[in-house]
Amino acid sequence: MNLPKVIADLAIAQNNFDSVAYANCFSETAVVFDEGKTHHGRKEIQDWITDSNERYQATMQPVSFEEKETESLLKAETSGNFPGSPILLSYHLEIADELIQSLKITG
């Protein structure tokens, strides 16, 4: 599977529980929607993923990637300390200038 560099970097950062590297995959003004909450900007995204890593210790294995006109869709098998693990999650991404502008994670 041929992933854009920023998506490959995101998966590596997630699997290494590296919150700083994960947040650096996003623009300064990026937005993340996950578990009914919205996180604005790189600092909030870093805080969110740090908390998520501590609670769930989730790793992701990309399964498929599709680029559309305005959005890309990554499907990844996600495993960790949460009910139903592993599960297939969809990562709806908007990417510009090689950085993630928005991410919405759905089940």
Rank of each mutant, 00 (worst) to 15 (best):
M1S: 14
N2E: 11
P4S: 07
P4M: 03
K5L: 07
I7Q: 08
D9A: 10
D9I: 14
A11D: 04
I12C: 02
A13H: 04
A13F: 00
A13W: 04
F17E: 02
F17R: 14
D18N: 15
D18A: 12
D18V: 05
S19H: 09
V20P: 00
A21Q: 02
A21Y: 03
A21P: 06
Y22M: 06
Y22A: 03
C25E: 07
F26Y: 15
S27P: 06
E28F: 11
E28N: 14
T29N: 13
A30R: 07
A30S: 14
V31M: 10
V31C: 12
V31Q: 05
V31I: 15
V32L: 13
F33T: 15
F33E: 09
E35I: 13
E35N: 09
G36K: 05
G36N: 01
G36L: 02
K37V: 15
K37P: 00
H39V: 12
R42H: 08
K43P: 00
K43I: 15
K43R: 08
E44I: 15
I45W: 11
Q46I: 11
D47V: 14
D47F: 12
D47N: 09
W48I: 14
W48K: 05
I49F: 11
S52C: 10
N53L: 15
N53Q: 12
N53I: 15
R55L: 14
Y56V: 00
Q57E: 14
Q57H: 14
Q57D: 13
A58S: 13
A58F: 13
T59F: 00
P62W: 01
P62H: 02
P62D: 03
V63A: 06
S64K: 11
S64R: 10
F65S: 02
F65P: 02
F65Q: 04
K68D: 08
E69L: 10
E69H: 10
E69P: 02
E69C: 06
T70S: 13
T70E: 15
T70I: 07
T70A: 07
E71C: 06
E71F: 08
E71H: 09
E71V: 14
S72W: 05
S72G: 11
L73E: 05
L73P: 05
L73H: 15
L73T: 15
K75I: 04
K75Y: 03
A76T: 04
E77W: 08
E77K: 15
T78I: 12
S79G: 04
S79Q: 06
N81F: 03
P83G: 06
P83M: 02
P83A: 12
P86M: 01
P86I: 00
P86E: 01
I87Q: 11
I87L: 12
L89Q: 14
L89P: 00
H92T: 10
H92P: 01
H92Y: 09
L93R: 05
E94H: 11
E94D: 04
E94V: 15
I95L: 08
I95F: 02
I95Y: 00
A96G: 04
A96C: 06
D97Q: 09
E98D: 14
L99S: 07
I100Q: 08
L103D: 08
L103P: 00
L103R: 06
K104R: 14
I105A: 10
I105C: 11
T106F: 05
G107P: 10
G107T: 08
